[in-house]
């Protein structure tokens, strides 16, 4: 480079030009190959473009399958879903299972009705609802009543939600099977209205 500050810079080079050599064909082949690879990669690693799928899972079904399906654990999880989202028992009986004494919703936690070894009475309550006063854990509750779920929930759902409330909040009673629910549903098929607590107490638990 020129060190003499008084001399003007070197004469200017002309602006660059381009040649017109063709792009090699193999480059286009490579584009196609890479595009093909890319589609395969997205297929196997893209999780089906599902917002719920995170690596290392590859599809929503795989994630779903991971959650327990068999055994009491699965019934518990399904029952929790019924409690919270499907039937929304949570609204009255609360997430803590303590109900609301002020609004006369009885608790499920430590409730002798829930904890009974044979679930006949609670199944009846869920199927046909309840009306009038009821004594739970020594307290009396006189709510407007619990709606019947006979026509809204299936046997499996009722069994699951009862399994759930019988294992949550410190409760520890045996799970409820859908067959038990079906048996009672058939037995009480003709019943018109909600149960009264006194009526229920007359029904033997084993029925």
């Amino acid at each position: 480079m020129n060190l003499d500050p008084n001399k003007s810079p070197a004469p200017q080079e002309p602006e660059p030009t381009t040649g017109s050599a063709p792009a090699p064909v193999w480059l286009f082949v490579l584009v196609a190959l890479l595009a093909f690879w890319g589609m395969g990669f997205l297929d196997s690693h893209g999780g089906g473009f599902d917002a719920r799928v995170y690596a290392p899972y590859n599809s929503a079904k795989e994630v779903e399958d991971e959650w327990p399906k068999s055994g009491a654990g699965a019934a518990f999880a399904r029952g929790e879903l019924v409690y919270r989202e499907v039937a929304r028992c949570i609204l009255c009986h609360q997430p803590t299972g303590l109900g609301s004494p002020g609004q006369q919703y009885p608790p499920l936690a430590k409730s002798e009705w829930v904890l009974a070894q044979e679930p006949g009475r609670v199944i009846r309550i869920v199927l046909n609802g309840l009306q009038g006063p009821i004594t739970v854990t020594g307290q009396q509750f006189n709510s407007n009543g619990m709606v019947p779920w006979r026509d809204t929930l299936t046997d499996q759902q009722i069994a699951d939600v009862l399994t759930y409330i019988r294992s949550e909040w410190g409760n520890n009673a045996p799970e409820v099977k859908p067959e038990q629910v079906k048996a009672i549903r058939d037995k009480t098929a003709g019943r018109p209205g909600q149960w009264l607590a006194d009526e229920l107490l007359k029904v033997l638990e084993t029925e």
Partner: peptide, 22 residues
């Protein structure tokens, strides 16, 4: 983030090999 986002990034980053080669 869901798996499809990093996968998209990977695929397209690999595709930038083309301009790099060119």
């Amino acid at each position: 983030v869901p798996a499809w986002m990093p996968s998209l990034s990977t695929v397209f980053t690999v595709l930038t090999a083309i301009p790099l080669i060119a």
